[in-house]
Amino acid sequence: MKIEEVPQDDGYLKDTNLRDIYYALDNDGKYRQVASTGWTPKTEALNLTWELISEEAETIRQDVLAGRKSPLAYHMAMRLFTVGILASYSGISRKIIKKHMQPKGFERIDGATLAKYAVAMNMSIEELKKLDG
């Protein structure tokens, strides 16, 4: 790939100080470092991944509204926390987390446990209890 072919498609890195660094050929056929703001196929791959994540989270949101699951399940899906990941961040056992992902279990969580979940997912207890966000 030549230097002028390095894509500058303004992906998600555009507004940060991060860049994709490419190695590309200059006019003398020598490799050089070139900073890129993004490439559309890659951004599309990222978008598709997030689209499917939000679709899954939306299904869970509907389940919560219908009383089949607890808000904890929704927040986990939004943040890509599997039961395993949440268990290791919070120190709460998988079995108990699964219980708390059900509406009945969620109602009975004590304050200390709620705080542990909130810290693990970097949100406030109020946010954790609600559905949005």
């Binding site: 790939m1 390095v6 991060l18 490799y31 599309e44 791959a45």
Partner: peptide, 20 residues
């Protein structure tokens, strides 16, 4: 398929999955 593309071009490969 999207996952393959992401890993190929994920931040930090220098383009084309380190091939360049």
């Amino acid at each position: 398929l999207a996952q393959v593309v992401r890993m190929l071009e994920e931040i930090g490969t220098g383009g084309a999955g380190f091939r360049y």
